[in-house]
Write a protein that binds this DNA or RNA. Structure first.
Lengths: 336, 336
DNA sequence: TTATATTGTTAAATCGTTATAACTATTTAT
DNA sequence: ATAAATAGTTATAACGATTTAACAATATAA
């Protein structure tokens, strides 16, 4: 695209040395195992020429030869979802700190799309994958792991699989915010969740049930499971819940929260007067409007840095060797 | 990383043909200029073998030889900002529709960071760049354009430069929402803006001034320019504005809006009773709380698809030739 | 019938780097 | 003094594709 690349050969010619030597000089700073001994004088001369000619190493060639692209693929539900957008940003920065790049792909919770983008990323030649699995991707992930692809799961995990992961302690988080609703006087608390089969949602449901049971309300639990992207059903449900005398909602995800809160207001009700609300993920306006919404603040930065750390350790540990699988569970913060 | 790549040679051996032929078969579907004539039978046989061996072309090798990576670099302010996150998603999808990938980098409005990430992306070998310029990047962008790097500017433009761009009609948008505030009875309207020197902010300020002047209020305009990421100053300003008898705010960006709205509520005031507010960019909660905030809804999908279209047309038009520069201005929608 | 196109295929160069083995020249050990 | 080790460097073969030129073999034209 640009003018013409200055190659290692140009430098070699100009500096009166062989291309190999230039290569050694260039990669000496990050010398892996064996430090190639090169004369300090020549090294300086080569670097000077490189500087003068404005040499920029060709990463494609480097990648082809070395098998390492310096890129991590990140597959998530939807990068426009604020939760993932924030993670994306931290991942970008984390990757940068390792001199790596990151390339994102969204799945919209569709396992077929998941498979597709994972394949595209692998073909592009990523050194590792950070994945937010969606329902129905267990086999794909198992395939990656057995195929020795450096894989780290984020936000959600897959049971019975030897794979590294970084997730929230969802069960504890859910229990805590449900407890908070209880302590604010609510007894009839519904949980609104997704019908997808993903670990974090299931754990959150369990936390809700834990809290209710501990409060002696095991009999009056209700989990409303909404299909992903089915907005209509939420409206009906909120109306129905109101009739049923529900006093509070515990909501499993940020997108769902916006829908439920929207329906509450549309039906002329207020928070917290008519309904108390607890949910996952922060929204700046929750605080601003002083709406009294209790929410779980996920340590998004830790998600990103830990996931990146894990995938890097996988990459470092020579492929072929057994993966240093590590499953990290992070603690939530509660606000509101 | 994975097991071992199936190469074009494996297929050649298995199918009893030469590697070249396999290459022809593989790239025949996307035959550029010259369609290489290959026997239908052999073609089928080769494809069958490829299918059986689960051949996945090595994009790195392909990129090295062909000089095309199939990747577009996107440089924006901050991918965790909802406005850019949404654009990111649309860009991802748009790229995919061209069989391309997209890699993002955030600048935090820092020209030095901008220069750095642009260089990283170029070294990685992107086929084109979509850039959201920040203040102080004019020279860098000029350098790219003269260096024949396929460049498209997004959301903001750089004056006096022959470069393709996709921006909102910011002046018209700003005028419209200011008019809306006026029609709702506000006379003392302040504009809150950033002190950065970027085209869209300047245009929005002009639109505000246009509307005020047309209403005969040229004398009572006030533009408060806040430094990027300087939260403290907003609090002081809102207090001061209240004392000054300001009735409405016209706010230049989404992040700034959240700050101003937050301060309004913190100071015990309400929207729209105490202050009317007009701003840029949607936030789902604006609608939900029925807060009566007027806002400009930017056609984010069109931003993305147009920008991708432009960069693709640059790529198609043989490098060396004159760029088909095109500057697109999109119309806003107003809600509230 | 001889010359010329056309079809189907292949050999070989190339993209820009890395990595291995080998090769001097010099130093150190014996 | 000879062998062995070391420092500094280079030649060369990859990496996995694309692409150009060339080559048979056959078909068409003159």
């Amino acid at each position: 695209m640009a003018v013409r690349q200055v190659t290692i050969k140009d430098i070699a010619r100009e500096a009166g040395v062989s291309p190999s030597l230039v290569s050694f000089v260039m990669s000496n700073s990050v010398a892996g195992k064996q430090l190639y001994r090169v004369n300090c004088e020549t090294s300086k001369r080569v670097l000077a020429v490189a500087e003068r000619l404005q040499y920029k190493p060709n990463n494609t060639a480097r990648a082809l030869r070395s098998g390492k692209t310096g890129t991590i693929g990140v597959v998530l539900s939807d990068i426009s979802n604020p939760f993932f957008a924030e993670i994306a940003r931290f991942l970008e920065d984390a990757a940068y700190s390792y001199d790596y790049n990151v390339v994102f792909a969204s799945t919209d919770e569709d396992p077929e799309k998941f498979r597709r983008v994972v394949n595209v990323l692998i073909n592009k030649g990523v050194d590792g994958l950070i994945l937010v699995p969606c329902g129905g991707t267990e086999d794909i992930i198992r395939g990656l792991v057995t195929g020795c692809v450096n894989t780290v799961l984020l936000d959600r995990t897959v049971p019975d699989l030897e794979v590294s992961s970084v997730v929230l302690d969802n069960r504890a988080a859910a229990r805590t915010i449900t407890d908070e609703l209880l302590s604010r006087g609510a007894k009839r608390i519904d949980m609104v969740s997704y019908s997808m089969q993903i670990s974090n949602t299931r754990d959150r449901e369990q936390g809700y049930l834990d809290a209710m049971a501990a409060a002696g309300l095991a009999g009056s639990t209700h989990i409303e499971r909404v299909a992903h992207n089915n907005y209509g059903s939420v409206a009906d449900y909120v109306r129905e819940a109101k009739d049923r005398g529900v006093e509070a909602f515990m909501i499993a995800t940020n997108t769902l929260s916006l829908q439920v809160i929207s329906e509450i207001y549309k039906s002329g009700c207020r928070i917290p007067e008519d309904f108390k609300v607890a949910c996952f993920d922060r929204n700046p306006l929750y605080d601003i409007y002083g709406s009294g919404i209790v929410y779980v603040r996920q340590p998004v930065d830790a998600f990103a840095s830990k996931a990146m750390e894990l995938v890097m350790s996988h990459i470092k540990s020579k492929s072929g060797k057994k993966h240093p699988v590590e499953q990290i569970v992070l603690s939530p913060e509660i606000t509101g």
